[in-house]
Write a protein that binds this DNA or RNA. Structure first.
Lengths: 145, 145
DNA sequence: CTAGCAACTCAAGCCGACTTGAGGTCAAGC
DNA sequence: GCTTGACCTCAAGTCGGCTTGAGTTGCTAG
C-alpha cells in the first residue's frame, strides 16, 4: 500500500501540514515512518483525521479525542465511560436541534423582539432548565461535553 | 418586575460573574441599569444567556452568536442567512449523531483496532467524504459552522 | 553535479474566551 | 459611623489549538 507524503495527507484531509505535525506532537496520529526527514503516512490516517475532526466539531479537546480513539484505534477508556460519552453526544445533538429550531423560528417570526414571542419563549423554556441543571453540577466551568 | 444583581444572574445561569461582564464587553448582553456601581439585570437576560450557551455548544463564536441573536433578540442577519445557519446546524447535528454511533460502536466492538472492523469503516466512509467536501470549499481553515 | 522545492525543526506569536489579582466603591446592618 | 461583603475597573495572565518565520536538509529532475 502506497504511503503518503504530508502534503498529500494535507490535500486529502484539508488540514494544513502544520496542524498534522501538531496532532502528532499531541500523540493523536503518527507517521508510519520517514523517508529522509519526510513523514510517510499510511492512508489509514485519513480515517483517524475524520474522527478527530468529528470529535472537534462535537466540542471535545484534542486530549479527550485522544482518550476516546486512543492509540491507532484502540480506545483508552473503559466501555462504561465510552457509553457515557455517547450519551453526552446524543444530548448535545438534541440541543443542537433545539438551536436549529430557534434560529429557524427567528428567521420567520414577525415579533419585534424574540422575547415578545410566545412560541420562542416556549422553545427556550426547556433549555433554561437543562442549562441550570448542568450549571449546578459543575459550578459553571468548562462544558462537560 | 424585580431586577437582578450580577450575583443572582450568576447563580441562576451557572456562569461566573466575570463571564457575564465579558459578554457585556462583547456586546452580547447589557444590564437594564446600575444601582451605584452594581449592574442590575432584567430576568429576561437569563433567556439570552441560554441562547448564548446553546450557540457556544454548537460551536459558534461569541461574535457569530451576537449576529444571530443580535441586540436584545432582534436578529442582525437577513432571513436567508439565518436559514443557512439553521441548515448548517442540522448538518452538524447529523454529524454528531454519526460520532455518537461511532463511539457507541467502539465501546462494543471486539476488533483489535477499530481500523480492522468492517462496520466501523462503513461508519466512517461517508464522513470522510463530507469532510473532504468541506475542506475543498474553505481551504481547511476554521469550521464554517 | 547542482538547483529546486517540499519538508523539516524550534521558538515565538496569535486569537478567543475567559480568569485572576490588585486596588477601589458603596449600601446595609450592627 | 463603621465595618463588611458584594460589586466594581483595568491590566495581565492562561489555555487550547494552531500559524508563522527563520534557518536547515535531502530526494529528484535537468
Amino acid at each position: 500500500m502506497k504511503l503518503l507524503d504530508i502534503g498529500e495527507v494535507s490535500e486529502a484531509s484539508g488540514l494544513p501540514a502544520s496542524a498534522l505535525r501538531y496532532y502528532e506532537e499531541q500523540g493523536l496520529i503518527a507517521p508510519a515512518g520517514r523517508r529522509g526527514l519526510r513523514r510517510q503516512y499510511e492512508p489509514e490516517v485519513l480515517m483517524q483525521l475524520t474522527l478527530i475532526s468529528m470529535g472537534k466539531a462535537a466540542g471535545f479537546t484534542l486530549d479527550e479525542i485522544g482518550s476516546i480513539f486512543g492509540n491507532r484505534g484502540r480506545p483508552v477508556l473503559p466501555r462504561e465511560e465510552l457509553h457515557q460519552k455517547a450519551d453526552a453526544l446524543e444530548r448535545q445533538m438534541r440541543e443542537l436541534g433545539a438551536l436549529a429550531k430557534a434560529v429557524r423560528h427567528v428567521a420567520n417570526c414577525q415579533a419585534e423582539s424574540q422575547f415578545d414571542c410566545q412560541a420562542f419563549q416556549r422553545l427556550m423554556r426547556v433549555n433554561i432548565k437543562t442549562m441550570q441543571r448542568r450549571a449546578r453540577k459543575n459550578g459553571g466551568r468548562k462544558a462537560p461535553v
